[in-house]
Every structure is written in C-alpha cells, then in structure tokens.
C-alpha cells in the first residue's frame, strides 16, 4: 500500500486517533500518580514532590516519553481538527430537523468541541506549570523552615540535591530565587534553573530543587487579582481546573471505548472495555479535580 494512504485513508486516521488517544490515557494515569503526592503535606511532602518533579524533568527515559506525549497531543489535535473539517464537508446541507439525541450520546456528538476545550486547558496548564518548570527563570528553590527550640527564631535552610557540590546552606528568608539575588545582589553568583553558579568560572556551586510544590500551592491559593480585575484568582483557577476536568471526563466517556472499536477490537471483551472506560472517565478526572479543591479550600 502507498505510504500516504496509511496517514490519509479514513481508517488509518482512526487508528492514529485511537493510538494517540490511548497513549494519552496512559499519560493521564502517570500524571495523576504524580499529582496525588500533593496530598502529602509539610516539608516532607514538598521534598517528595520536588524530587519527583526533578526526576520527571531530567530522567532520559522520561524525556523520550515526554516527546512521545507532545507528539501525541499535537497529532491527536491536528488529526481531530482535520477529521472534523472533512466530516463537516461530508454533509454540505444540514437537516432542518435532526433528532440526534435519539441515537447517540452527548459525548460522542461533541468530541471535537470537547477536545478543543481540553486543548485550551492543556495550553493554559503548560504555560502555568510546565513552561515555568522547564524554561522559567526565577523559580524559587526549595527552602526548609527550621524552628530552633532553644532560640525560638525561625531559620531557613536551602536544601541540596544528592548531586550538589555543597550541602544544605542556611539562607535569609523562606524564599530563595532570583528576586533575592536582585534585592541583595551577590556579585559573584547567579541562578541557572536549579543550580547556583559562579559568575566568573561558571562552576556549579550548589544544586537545589525547583520548588514546584510551592508554585502549585500558591497558584491555587493566590488572592491576587486575575488580569488585575477578577479578585481571588486562586478560586478562579480552581473552578477553571474543575470544569476542565469535567470536560475531559466527557471526552473520555466516548473516547476511551471508541479507541478500541477503531483498532478493530469488538468482541466478548467489549462490554468490559466499555465499563472500564466509563469508570476511567469518571474516576481519573475526579481524582485530578479534588487536588486543587483540597489546596484551595482545605490546605492551611
């Protein structure tokens, strides 16, 4: 068969939609397991989450998986948009009266709209977290707060990774980032991601953890005004996150079991696949959604 047909034919497009979609379902599970660590509170929780975040951004195997994920998202979205346009063209004149709810589910009829909304969420989500973690300068580094029972005063310790040339160092305040360096200029060092580097010879002096934990907590707890207008942006972000997860749930409601049909799997296991797909599409988004709700409303 011509190579082009394996991308262009109607059935081949279904295979690709299904394969990328199912891979993204696996990604969701991985991402969820990571997120659930946010329920562990205090310094121990922060350390564990940030260690996990560092691992996820540096491990070479994870790196390969992350590229497969980016490609899957892009391909799933582009293929989906292309399919939606083609399908629109297949019916140039619409019905004056169409009772489509009589024979199809809401989810199955609105996959393109739901998918576009999920894509919009992914874009905002990546700007808010992924980009900051990956490229953002001035991410705070993990600092441990220690209360000395003898003195009573709070002390702060910049926490080092096992690879760091220097061990934990005491610092001035609870936040250590570029802002500190700007406010109290230390002439001979700068921060490069999670590393503190000597300006003169570029030697790495110290390696810490980017505090993604703090970023996440403060993101959903923020009392600042969104776009300088809407008060309590943390609440807005929480509501937006929960709504996005509901939309994701509807997308998965049809998408999960549909992927198996597209791959030609329709047999005695199909009822089980359908049930599992429905449970997956309800449980996974709910578990994602309760994390920001917990952070915003319950976490002190």
């Amino acid at each position: 068969m011509a190579k082009s047909a394996f991308l262009k034919s109607s059935i081949a497009k279904k295979y690709w939609m299904a394969l990328t979609g199912l891979f993204l379902c696996l990604f969701l599970v991985g991402h969820l397991i990571g997120n659930l660590q946010l329920f562990k509170s205090g310094y121990e929780g922060a350390l564990q989450f940030n260690k996990y975040a560092l691992f996820m951004t540096t491990n070479p195997l994870i790196k390969i998986m992350s590229y497969v994920t980016y490609i899957s998202i892009l391909f799933h979205a582009i293929d989906g948009i292309y399919l939606a346009i083609q399908n629109k063209k297949a019916r140039p004149v619409a019905y004056a009266m169409n009772n489509s709810s009589a024979n199809t589910s809401f989810s199955s009829r609105n996959m393109a709209v739901l998918g576009t909304l999920v894509l919009f969420f992914i874009a905002t989500h990546m700007i808010n977290f992924w980009a900051k973690m990956k490229f953002g300068t001035g991410m705070p580094l993990l600092v441990k707060e220690i209360v000395d029972p003898n003195v009573g005063a709070k002390q702060y310790m910049l926490i080092a990774t096992p690879e760091s040339p220097q061990q934990n160092v005491p610092v001035q305040g609870p936040v250590f980032d570029n802002n500190i360096l700007k406010k109290q200029p230390i002439a001979d060092i700068y921060i490069d991601g999670n590393k503190i580097v000597n300006k003169k010879n570029n030697d790495v002096l110290f390696e810490g953890y980017k505090d993604l934990h703090k970023l996440t907590i403060s993101f959903f707890k923020s009392k600042a005004r969104l776009f300088n207008v809407i008060p309590n942006e943390g609440l807005v972000f929480t509501i937006f996150y929960v709504l996005s997860m509901a939309i994701l749930g509807f997308h998965l409601w049809h998408g999960f079991q549909s992927a198996f049909q597209s791959l030609g799997i329709n047999n005695k296991f199909t009822p089980a696949i359908k049930t599992f797909g429905k449970l997956f599409s309800v449980i996974v988004p709910i578990l994602f959604a309760i994390i920001p709700v917990y952070i915003h409303f319950i976490l002190k």
């Binding site: 262009k8 049809h254 597209s262």
Partner: peptide, 13 residues
Amino acid sequence: DEEGFGNCTNTGA
C-alpha cells in the same frame, strides 16, 4: 473515501 463520505467517529447512530 473518494466518494466524499465522512470519517467514522464511533457514535453508533
């Protein structure tokens, strides 16, 4: 595909 039919999205209608 050449006839201009759309692509199946497994709605089951």
